[in-house]
Nucleic acid binder design. Structure first.
Lengths: 175, 175
DNA sequence: GCAATTGGTTCCATAATAGAACCAAAAGTG
DNA sequence: CACTTTTGGTTCTATTATGGAACCAATTGC
């Protein structure tokens, strides 16, 4: 299977990575979250080549992650903004930051710390259950077949999945 | 800048991606989380070529994400397990799943749903502040310079950062 | 004992990336 | 206004990464 075909997998991780899993893409999104708007700002921040940045920005537009707005009357100067779909990638970035802070900060410690304006404290984000509010632990999460799997149960795509994978879709093993 | 040099950036996202940001890597980690252990299981799950999988597994071992254990007396059959460092990537996967569920499920809906064993309900994970427990919103998070930035303030690496980036490191703009 | 499976490696063709040069339009400068 | 710089790219070429297939030795299943 080629990388460009991974979005054919019945898996939300694969589908997400097919859009933002390319080299540089999440770093470009990071820069726009940080407030960078112009082509040249992002290019100098990442020191990425121009045609690579150009390519990635086009793909992100096609994917509905960012929006290109003209910012002058002539219509030849642009700024890039995150759409709602793009802004919703914030938890992914938080996850990457947290892991890097913990495991790859090296001798100097974390580059950036985060203060929660609501309570005023320095904090670390952690995942909670939206039903009961309790912090989540991997071993306390059970996978259940979702609507997609149910509907596809009789169709070729699912029928061809290895038995092992079918089992896992309904299993509780998340180690 | 080349991709392999991104871990020189003073940024936890860049550092994390330098380890797990390659094609296939996060999908391999997903498979191990799902309970796949053997080379051949992962290979047939992803339909990735063998030498690519081999290369990725070596890199993940070097990065301390996975551990290769012999499972037979002859010492020629192996299984791959996540280390503590690898298990700690769970929130990153949750983030990717959630986004894919919301934005890329297509006509069939989510592939998998999640039940919280503690409360018994189907749920969606969401990020909360570990200090006050309130659900986080991007606009309510303020970036503060962390220890790394403070220590590097006089050193070349930081001195060479564009002024704009220095400002942003201490700013509150996270749209 | 023999075939199939496992866990790879090697070789080659194709696709992605990095670096540099180039360019036209817009904006800043005197 | 003339001139230089900046912006936002595109094109070209060399290098690196990836995909597909063949190959192989050791182990397992029958």
């Amino acid at each position: 299977m080629k990388w460009e075909e991974i979005n054919t997998q019945i898996c939300s991780i694969a589908r997400t990575l097919s859009i933002v899993g390319d080299r540089w893409t999440l770093l470009i999104i990071r820069d726009i979250f940080m407030g960078l708007r112009r082509f040249s700002e992002i290019q100098s921040s990442l020191e990425i080549t121009k045609h690579r940045l150009s390519d990635r920005l086009h793909k992100l537009q096609q994917g509905g992650i960012i929006e290109k707005r003209t910012v002058d009357p002539s219509g030849k100067r642009f700024e890039y903004f995150l759409t709602e779909k793009g802004l919703d990638l914030y938890p992914v970035l938080i996850g990457l930051v947290q892991w890097g802070d913990r495991w790859e900060s090296g001798q100097y410690g974390e580059p950036v710390r985060y203060r929660h304006k609501v309570c005023g404290e320095l904090m670390r984000p952690h995942y909670c259950c939206d039903q009961c509010g309790v912090p989540l632990h991997p071993s306390e999460i059970e996978n259940c077949p979702g609507p997609a799997v149910k509907k596809l149960a009789d169709e070729t795509q699912f029928a061809n999945l290895p038995l092992r994978v079918k089992k896992l879709l309904g299993s509780t093993d998340s180690r």
